[in-house]
Design a protein around this nucleic acid. Structure first.
Length: 535
RNA sequence: GCCCCCAUAGUUCAACGGACAGAACAGUGGCCUUCUAAGCCGCGGAUUGAGGUUCGAUUCCUCAUGGGGGCACCA
């Protein structure tokens, strides 16, 4: 509906001021206190260009509008130069009918048809259990994936991990040390400087115990660090997949860093002359004021950058869109990767990086897998359930910090926002049951109440919310919208009785709340949450 | 020292440069003989500070203050 208004304004501008037909302006929902449905700032932005008074322009556009036929809406001007539109009831009724007709498909679309999109998220190395911080990325990825799918895109989900680097070595060393302790060997020599940075979580002990149980080593030196690392990684990956499973987050590919075609990419980079050698290492010659970075260490092993460049280059060639969801600690690496991809002939414009800021623990402590200061995603799910966890983790804008307090989450889980949404869905189910076999003639024209129209207007926003998230990647708009809709519904529920003696009116209102139920269900499913019929 | 995020109500979070800044939780006062009170209707309570751009700034720019993250031949 917004779009049709926008187009109408556009054609009015084209007629009145042909030189400015490409001007950018907005059409938005009018604030509550304004007696209108939509508002536009078109006259205000034109005023600057034309050097005329905004109200004058607004008046001209308004009268052009009134002359046009068949636009089921009225238009008014308001100082300092807003154009306010009031859409006729029949337009809203038409939208309501559309919801009922499209049902489960309401909110879906075809703009992604024929396009494929790669979505990388989580990508945690198998060095420890997933934390609530990883959960944030997982949920953002889940919702985005669902939204792109509903808009017709083919979505491929990747989990990219480092299977051979220094972190894995540390994992192996950590387990070995723990095994040593369990075998009561002398570990005094292990506490040198290098080892201080090992993983310290209790889970290391569990893995070591399993190792001792299964492999029965005489001494800890019976296995190599790599063997310890591989053993641990396999167990940890099992945990990770299990945790993701609980959230309903699945992946199409688990991509290994060591599988990337680093040799070819390095050769190409050298060929175009943006690699040089210094101190026995190979460096990427960066641009744009950024520091040069090491691609290949003097030991001959590549740093993470080289495989990551190769990985993204391949994705950019294969997909129409490449979305990478990363934690804030990876924030610096991306400009380098984009730069290299571009230099190698890849379209780095296809890459969209979502940096989700850190989750902080209640007491101001940050989450750290290495220092074993974290709340695991499993703990969160165990405490509040997967649905609440998902809603919770999706509610904040990705680039704002999130303070997480598990105790608070437990406390508030019973009055969690998600229940407000679920409750609305369940209440409608109950209304339907109550109405039973009552059969009247549903005539939407009977829906003239202020509250009824308000609810329809709120429902009609849904497709725009979904489409908007695909454009802006602002996943948090979805839970906020559902919450707002739930408020509108509950308010409606208190004021308007659906099931009454008037059979026709009952049927009409029943259709309205069924439409609302559809939007709740579609919205919740996009978040990976199954709607509840009973609470 | 340099770079990137962030700063909104007691707390946790919203708000394409738009018209009186919205919720939730906490506090407080009401509402169950009628479709589920996990709800509804009230009340109190906020844009860190100083400049600037603009018809209009929570939003953009500069500076200050305060948090977080980075600045590795770790990922």
């Amino acid at each position: 509906m917004k779009d049709s208004i926008k187009n109408s304004i556009k054609s009015a501008i084209e007629k009145l001021y042909p030189g400015h037909k490409d001007i950018e302006f907005s059409v938005d929902y009018a604030p509550e206190n304004i007696h209108a449905d939509f508002a536009s700032n078109a006259a205000l932005v034109l005023a600057k260009e034309l050097g005329k008074r905004p109200m004058e322009i607004a008046g001209e556009i308004a009268s052009a509008f009134r002359q046009a036929q068949g636009l089921a809406m009225t238009i008014e001007t308001a100082p300092p130069g807003f154009l306010n539109f009031k859409v006729e009831a029949k337009q809203w009724i038409a939208e309501l009918k559309k919801i009922l007709k499209e049902d489960k498909k309401y909110g879906s679309g075809k703009i992604g048809k024929g396009k494929n999109i790669n979505l990388e998220s989580v990508s945690a190395n198998p060095t420890g259990p997933l934390t609530v911080g990883h959960g944030r990325g997982a949920v953002i990825g889940l919702v985005l994936s669902n939204i792109f799918k509903t808009l017709g895109y083919k979505v491929v989900r990747d989990y990219y991990y480092n299977d051979a680097g220094l972190q894995m070595k540390k994992l192996g060393q950590s387990v070995k040390l723990s095994v040593k302790r369990q075998l009561k060997e002398n570990t005094a020599d292990d506490f040198n400087q290098e080892q201080i940075d090992l993983y310290m979580g209790a889970y290391i002990g569990e893995i070591a115990a399993q190792f001792v149980e299964q492999k029965r080593p005489q001494t800890a030196d019976d296995a190599t660090v790599k063997e310890y690392a591989d053993f641990a990684a396999e167990i940890i990956f099992g945990w990770i997949k299990n945790t993701l499973n609980k959230l309903g987050v699945g992946f199409d590919n688990f991509v290994r860093e060591s599988d990337q075609k680093t040799k070819e990419v390095l050769e190409q980079l050298e060929k175009i002359g943006i690699v040089y050698e210094k101190d026995g290492a190979k460096w990427l010659k960066n641009a744009g004021g950024r520091e040069d970075r090491v691609l290949v260490r003097k030991t001959g092993e590549p740093t993470y950058r080289l495989p990551d460049i190769a990985y993204h280059l391949e994705k950019v060639k294969k997909y129409d869109k490449v979305v990478t969801i990363l934690g804030a600690d990876h924030i610096t690496q991306f400009p380098d990767i984009s730069y290299a991809v571009e230099k190698l002939g890849g379209d780095s414009g296809k890459i969209w990086v979502i940096i989700n800021q850190f989750v902080t623990l209640g007491g101001g402590k940050k989450m750290s897998t290495r220092k074993a200061e974290y709340v695991t995603l499993d703990e969160l799910i165990a405490e509040v359930g997967a649905d609440v966890a998902k809603f919770f983790l999706a509610m904040n804008s990705a680039n704002s910090h999130m303070v997480f307090d598990l105790d608070l989450a437990k406390d508030t889980s019973e009055k969690n926002p998600v229940y407000k949404v679920q409750y609305a869905h369940a209440r409608i189910e109950s209304i339907k049951a109550r109405a039973g076999l009552q059969k009247g003639k549903a005539d939407m024209k009977l829906l003239q109440d202020r509250e009824e129209m308000k609810l329809i207007r709120e429902l009609a926003k849904f497709p725009e919310i979904v489409g908007g998230i695909a454009d802006t990647y602002n996943v948090h708009h979805l839970p906020h919208y559902l919450l707002q809709l739930a408020e509108s519904f509950h308010s409606f529920y208190e004021k308007v009785r659906v099931v009454s003696d008037d059979a026709d009116l009952t049927s009409s209102r029943l259709a309205l709340v069924e439409a609302a139920q559809t939007v709740f269900a579609n919205g919740l499913r996009l978040m990976g949450i199954e709607p509840m019929n009973k609470m």
